[in-house]
Design a protein around this nucleic acid. Structure first.
Lengths: 196, 196
DNA sequence: AAATTAATTGAATGACCATTCAATTTATGT
DNA sequence: ACATAAATTGAATGGTCATTCAATTAATTT
């Protein structure tokens, strides 16, 4: 089946990019990494651009999956809500994902409209999901914030801003930990909890 | 003088990266762009890595300059403080800087320790400056926030997170504008103004 | 003016790149 | 078993890459 081979190739491309950087990840290296000929790679992806777009889609899809993992259900308690937030700030996918490759893809949106559209769709969807979760928290009487939309946007800005800054520090670093707690504490403090 | 030539080359490298992407910015293209031989470029930068590091330093230095431009002085009034914040969120350097090149450089920190160190030093310095400005605002009796340190960190997370997200939208876009106002409004609301 | 140093050229090198393609192997359907 | 299609190979192509270097020109010093 062609679809699985395509996916295999994308995964290999990702693995190679992780090792040598996206800018040095070539078709030949992908083939070599898989133990197949470079010609075969090009049989599944007519151009390198196609492969790049495939990688981008793959990364975004995986990212979404990890991002939403765990808190798919309803937000029924204050604890659920806090876990949701902590989950957003935890850089747990670092074990699955490479930030260098991710930001390299992100950088491409500024020169490639297709990349920008993909990223935009992904981010809008991600924001929508958080908004819905917060809406649920409100409907379930956990919080009483009035402007859920902007609340979600603020939280995501904090999340994304924290990734950007914390990328500088090792995850074991003490500063990394305390900084992360600062962000989380501020976030949780944004909620107007209902008195029960 | 060698120093000015080096700077010329870095600037040309930046201009080329802007046009074709950092991953496609080659020594030859830099030479071509300047109307000099590729050999001369390599005379000033022994390896391409040196040139890359030169570009990174240049970008960070310029970025800092634009970031701090205007609000070098004391924060004496509430208006000064608000302007400082608005300035941080305004993407005004987009006319001078290319986000694609910037994020491409940023992505390199994940695989190159020298890049990471440069970026880290730059960000720490930038954060220090904002912290000092807020401290001034406090000493001048404009705000009464107790934890200036974490306040500065939260503000920067919002700033960086907003850049990340707003990169997706055209600056003329209505959503871009309203989103930006959401961030700014939230930021200003973080201040505990003194009653005068 | 001669000597020395610095700036600059441009061609050569060998490696790697994305892409093409004819040939071959493997799988699939009849 | 045969025929058709799909998967795969590997070599060839022409281009660009970073890097090297001997030769040349310009600037500076003596």
């Amino acid at each position: 089946m062609g679809a699985t081979r395509s996916l295999e190739i994308i995964r290999a491309f990702y693995a190679v990019a992780r090792e040598v950087g996206l800018e040095n990840a070539s078709i030949s290296r992908v083939g070599e990494h898989m133990g197949i000929s470079n010609g075969l790679v090009m049989h599944y992806f007519k151009t390198k651009d196609e492969l790049l777009i495939g990688l981008n889609d793959y990364i975004l899809q995986q990212h979404m999956q990890v991002m939403l993992e765990g808190h798919r259900g309803q937000i029924r308690s204050r604890k659920d809500l806090e876990e949701l937030i902590r989950n957003l700030f935890s850089r747990k996918w670092n074990q699955y994902f490479d930030d260098g490759v991710f930001y390299s893809c992100y950088a491409l949106i500024y020169r490639n409209e297709a990349f920008k559209d993909s990223f935009k769709a992904y981010l809008l969807e991600l924001h929508r999901v958080l908004r819905d979760e917060l809406q649920q928290a409100r409907e379930n009487g956990i919080i009483e914030n009035e402007n859920i939309d902007s609340l979600a946007e603020i939280i995501f800005a904090l999340v994304d801003g924290s990734y950007y800054y914390l990328g500088m520090f090792d995850q074991g670093d003490a500063l990394h930990k305390s900084q992360q707690e600062t962000y989380i504490a501020h976030c949780l403090q944004l909620f107007k909890y209902s008195v029960s």
